[in-house]
Simulated assay, not measured.
Amino acid sequence: MNQVTDIIDHNLKILFIGFNPGRRSAETGHHFAGHSNKFWRLLAAAGLTPYQFKPEEDSKLLTVGIGITNIVARPSRAAEEITKEEYRAGREILKEKLIAYKPQIACFAGVGVYKEFAGRTRVTCGMQPISVISGVTDFVVPSPSGLTRILFNDQLAYYQELVQLL
Rank of each mutant, 00 (worst) to 15 (best):
Y87P: 02
W40P: 02
A73M: 08
T28F: 00
F152S: 12
A46D: 09
Q128S: 09
V72P: 04
L165W: 02
E27S: 13
L15P: 00
Q160S: 00
R24E: 03
L165P: 00
L94Q: 06
F139M: 14
P50K: 02
T137W: 03
T137Q: 07
L165I: 07
H30N: 03
L12Q: 08
R122S: 14
K38Y: 11
S143P: 05
I71D: 06
G112F: 06
Q104G: 04
Y158F: 14
F117T: 03
C107P: 13
A33W: 10
V141R: 09
Y159Q: 15
L166C: 09
L94S: 09
S134G: 08
L12M: 13
R24D: 04
T28P: 00
T63N: 14
A73Y: 11
A45R: 03
Y87I: 09
T124G: 15
S145Q: 07
A33F: 02
F39M: 14
L42W: 10
H10Y: 12
N11W: 00
T83P: 13
N2P: 04
Y158T: 07
K60S: 00
A100L: 07
P21Y: 07
A45G: 02
A45F: 00
P75V: 15
G112L: 08
Q155N: 13
T137K: 11
T121L: 11
R149E: 13
E80V: 15
H35W: 00
Q128A: 06
A109M: 15
A118L: 09
I66Y: 08
N2G: 03
L156F: 00
L61K: 04
A33R: 04
S145R: 06
D58K: 00
A118I: 12
T137R: 03
A78H: 14
G90Y: 06
R149G: 04
H35R: 05
G67L: 03
I130Q: 11
V111E: 13
V72A: 14
T83I: 14
G135V: 13
G67T: 03
F139C: 08
G22R: 08
V113I: 08
R120Y: 03
M127G: 01
A78L: 08
A79K: 15
E96N: 07
I66G: 04
G110R: 12
S36T: 13
R122H: 13
E57T: 04
A45N: 02
R77I: 10
K13Y: 05
L62R: 09
H10E: 10
G112A: 08
C125I: 03
S131M: 09
F108G: 14
M1P: 00
L48T: 07
L147D: 10
E96H: 03
L162W: 14
K54I: 03
G126M: 06
H10N: 07
E56W: 05
A26E: 11
Y159V: 11
I130E: 10
P103A: 01
P75H: 14
P142Y: 12
I14D: 06
S76M: 01
I133A: 02
Y158E: 01
G47W: 08
A45C: 02
V72H: 06
